[in-house]
Amino acid sequence: MDSMGMIIGTWLAGFLTLAILSFLYKDNPFYKLAEHLYVGVSAGYWLIYVAFFDIKPMLIDTFMSETGFEKWIILIPGALGLIMLSRWFPKIAWLSRWPIAFTVGIGAGLGITANLQGYVLPQVQATILPLTGFTVADLSNLILIIGVVTTLMYFYFSKPHKGLLGGGAKIGIVFIMVSFGASFGYTLMARISLLIGRLYFLFHDLLRILD
């Protein structure tokens, strides 16, 4: 039923799985082999990925199919991309700062509005939880508000942490640590799931002792 390619592929995958796992015992020739293969293959993979999911559809196809303004304007990022390669020629290497500056500018410009509109404002809004009585939910809300406020106080840098600010910051670090513990405990499941996934591959696909 299985093609030869499938069988070879599965055994190759099995070998590489065990080679990486062997790192847990100690660094060894199998891990070194798998590691270098991984770095090489994945670099090649991303090169192909960028060529066919990025440069081709966005630059080449746009240039070929569009007309007028849209056709020529797309050459600007194309030119910036080429300028990036000026790094190969030490005399004009400084030109590469232009595309880098562009990249940084994009991140900075987007970062400002997305952080404010997408995070700060809705999250502040969600913390405005007036107490409606003396229920368990109200107590939880109160703790939530105290947690947010004191955590923010912990990140107050320009005053010594003394007095009210110091007290708040101390409570804040308590919340932070409880939060880290909770995340750690919660995340354990994700990590074990991955191991289950690999073992399932070994038992089911490679050794076929599990249906």
Binding site: V120, P130, I145
Partner: peptide, 20 residues
Amino acid sequence: QDLIKIGIVYLIVTLVIAGS
């Protein structure tokens, strides 16, 4: 940044107290 943080703290506390 710190001024904004403390502003957020005051905003939250004031509105929560007022609402309550």
